[in-house]
């Protein structure tokens, strides 16, 4: 288990006591997300659907790489890594 820095955009900070970055332990991106939601339960409904899967409009990055192009939630993380979580912003 490594301590991972999770960077939160402005829109997610109200659910994390206003913090721009928090530390969570885990050995995969999925564990980091689980740990984040455990520490900040208000984030859960924003990040996860009713079945516990990450919502479609949420993008997760590990060190600036989209985890969809890595091993998704199974992507391993090590000390010093940075995870970033961002909603998709779109319009017409």
């Amino acid at each position: 288990m490594s301590e991972i820095s999770v960077r939160l955009p402005t829109v997610l900070r109200p659910q994390a006591n206003g913090q721009s970055s928090v530390n969570v332990t885990g050995s995969t991106v999925g564990e980091v997300v689980d740990g984040l939601v455990a520490d900040y339960p208000d984030l859960e409904s924003n990040l996860l659907d009713d079945g516990g899967a990450v919502r479609k409009f949420i993008n997760i990055y590990l060190n600036d790489e989209d985890i969809r192009f890595l091993e998704k939630l199974e992507t391993p993380v090590v000390q010093g890594d940075e995870v970033a979580i961002l909603p998709a912003v779109a319009g017409g």
Binding site: P9, N59, D64, A84, L86, V89, A90
Partner: peptide, 12 residues
Amino acid sequence: FQLDPMEYMKAE
């Protein structure tokens, strides 16, 4: 439009 997520992250 859809904000390029990576650029959005860098902007943050």
